[in-house]
Design a protein around this nucleic acid. Sequence first.
DNA 1: TGCCAGTAAAG
DNA 2: CTGCCTACTGGCA
Length: 726
Amino acid sequence: MHITGWLFDLYPWQSRLVLWFITPEGEKWRVEDDFPYRIYLQGNPARLRRLGQAWESRGWVRRTYPASRLGLEGRELPVLALELRGYNHLPRLRAWLGNQKDLACYNCDLDPAAYYLYTKKVWPCAWYDLEVKDGRLLAAVPREEQFALDFSLPPLTTLSLGLAQDPLIPLGAGNTITLGWEGRTLTLEAPDPGSLVAEVAHRLKRSDPDLILSDWGDEKIIPLLWLWSQRHKVPLPLDREAGPVSREFARGRSYFSYGRIVYQGASAPCYGRWHLDRRNSFFFREAGLKGLIQAARIGQLPLQQVARASPGTLITSMQLARAVADGILIPWRKGEPERFKTAGDLLRIDKGGLVFMPPVGVHFQVAEVDFASMYPTIMTIHNISPETVNCSCCAGERVPEADYRICRRREGLVPRTLRPILLLRERLKARARRSGPEEAAQYGARQTALKWMLVTCFGYLGYKNARFGRIEAHEAVTAYGRDKLLTAKEVCEAAGFTVLHGLTDCLWIKKVGINEAELEGLCREISAATGVKLALEGIYRWIVFPASRQDPKRPVATRYFGVFQDGALKVRGLACRRRDTPPFVRQAQEALLTRLAAAATPEALAALQPELENLAADFRQRLREGRFTPQDLVITRVLSQPPEDYRVDTPTALAARQLQRAGLHLLPGEKVRYVHKEAKGPKETRIQAVPFAATLDDYDTGLYLKLLNRAIDEVLLPLSEYKSSR
DNA sequence: TGCCAGTAAAG
DNA sequence: CTGCCTACTGGCA
């Protein structure tokens, strides 16, 4: 039977893969496909033969055969292929293989669903011509391009799921569930856990939604509902899969990424249905459902996995897909943590992006020009990949200021992976510019999803334990980057511009009579000279580079604010950009900046001063009169370590311990929210953690005044100094 | 005053 | 998919 279907969900089920398709009319199809998981081993032939026989006799594999596959460097390797019987043996086999020496293992730690997608060269969230017989998938032929600029969705029905109160208040102990469908919302008021489950179950059965879109579903709602459903024997139809589904709920994990700790909550996916928790999804937060779908298509991972994945997982998945499609063996990444870098390593490696320090103060006639996707473009045009650095096949291209060569003969895995992403992102950005606001937002969300994958790809090159990482490749990229920014600076100066500031891939340049036409020409010239597209970000009416607070004569690299000719503000590094700034301080600073954006000339800027002072005074007044609510005063910080490890009683540590005493155990990377109270007693009494801060008699006016003044000064001080210097 | 622990930004 | 660098603050010796 032939049908047209959109690949919605897939997962391993016993010894087969289950795929769910949705037709244009909204019909759901569940089909199974036979997919033997194939691993490859390399080693002594006699030993491999014995091993194959042993595994066959134990019933772990259904077939073994000698084969020849490519290594990452492009050489043919003789290997033994083993086709596993089902997926349940995988953890045991991995444990066994982990103990073997003199045995190279390939393709043994892939996710079965992802491995299926890579091998069959198909991807989720796309339309296929299907041939189906007796519930089995015989063929799936894509009806579209994987990297298509436009894609369509089948009709999807949604049920929203949330909490009525703060997520730290447990369900059944002061908190309850909200449901939303077809524009209606309902707050459940069940008398006991069993009836609460029954009410959710009733709605699920009635709506049979394709998508459960939740807030806090992954860690707070689904695990508890599932537990209650089992305990009180009330069925909860979370899945479309008819068989018995086993669920295990653990806590999430904390891990480091780019020098900061991140918490990823545990996941509660459904089978044959999507459950997306927007509070536990990086991609949803950054790029919405459209971005998630875009990421699932090119990352070739089931959408529910993408929702909980980091950009690193996505870019790695793309590299794995590329490798499988190209017939390249995938080395096993065993979980050894990276060794700490020695001091010598640090000296050698830690030359990142180039920085030119700006002159402190207010500036006019300034433009900003940015290299587009600089590092990923460098990797692509200079063919930088772990296996192309210091290759043995050719003399290669010399890397500037570094003693490395890059292969000229074979294109690396990383450039092959990045090229189509870069191309699609450019096309999405161009299309967004030519679309109306609604469409532009959709294209924008999709290009944002790609941006994060590109950024992370560079980061991963520098991580020794990344599957396709190599520190020399990372250094080569930054070396080319510095070279290109330097070239850009020289071309600007030759054209009579003064370079005020430079930061990795951006330059702020100044010239009397600055104009767009000349800048466009300049950008074209630099793009041609460097091979990376340099684009005009905009001409500023004015821009401020504030002084360091520690030394008022010294500039800082990463703080500035200004207004473009079209009136748009650009603010970086100020209090309002920090996540630990209380909302009322953010509002105050943003109000000042918004007012400033109106000033087009140096005279107008100076004239605004009194009005801004009044605005600031008004906020101070409101604070002193106690007119802000606890929500306005909440400070949000990320827990950097387990609460008991803090050596200093910072507000973060105190708040976390307060929560701990209430039975709420936070892990590193999770957010802590608190308010400073007006209290004279011991430290612990001076802060109040959310959600226990809803009612508050008094707050620490002095402390908040200090924060407010700091944010006001950040904006007003540079201006008053400018005014007095005129 | 200097030092340490802790926290966060921009690219 | 497991530790950029730099600026800054608050507390303590």
